[in-house]
Structure formats: C-alpha cells, structure tokens
C-alpha cells in the first residue's frame, strides 16, 4: 500500500506527484506544501507501527518537493540550468 495525498490540485501517490512535478505536468505552486506535509504527518501518526523506511521515503520525497518548490521561487542564473534535478 502506497501513501496517497489528497490535495485540491492532486490526489494520488506521493511518488507519482513527484514524478509529475519533475515532468512538469503539475504546477508545483498548486501544491500547498504545508497541507501536504500535514497529511504526511497525519499518515505517519496513523501508522500502527512506524514504518521508518516508508516514512523516510516519503520524507525524502516531501523534502524534495520543498526543495524543488523553494528552488522554483528563485531566479535561474547562468550555469545553474544543468544543476536542476
């Protein structure tokens, strides 16, 4: 069973969201990170036994999304284009 998020702009697995954002099929500005992380937190707390691997996987994804989004707020300079993930 995979962790699913329910947001206004997206509803589905988190890894799929990350994938779509990478492929620029979803505008990351439409994804409220606070809500995303809140749902993630809720999901973690709802686990009977904390699945560290799973949680950490989503943690990395969420952190990646944050990093991506925060990066997107910034201007692109020369020589930085190839550094984007």
């Amino acid at each position: 069973m995979s962790y699913e998020v329910k947001l206004e702009a997206f509803e589905g697995p988190l890894d799929l969201l990350l994938h779509l954002i990478h492929r620029l099929e979803i505008d990351i500005y439409d994804i409220p990170m606070a809500e995303l992380t809140a749902q993630y937190m809720e999901h973690i707390r709802a686990m009977q036994v904390l699945e560290l691997n799973e949680a950490s996987e989503y943690l990395v994804m969420a952190a990646s999304l944050l990093a991506i989004k925060s990066k997107m707020l910034l201007p692109i300079h020369e020589g930085e284009l190839d550094e984007t993930e």
């Binding site: 990170m33 606070a34 995303l36 992380t37 809140a38 993630y40 937190m41 973690i44 707390r45 904390l50 560290l52 949680a55 950490s56 943690l59 969420a62 952190a63 944050l66």
Partner: peptide
C-alpha cells in the same frame, strides 16, 4: 510550515 512539519516528523522518526 511544511519544513517545520517535516522536522517534527524527523524528530518523531
């Protein structure tokens, strides 16, 4: 906010 949430998650984890 999300960052803080994740930090909290990290703390819990």
């Amino acid at each position: 906010e999300a960052k803080e949430t994740l930090h909290e998650a990290i703390r819990e984890m």
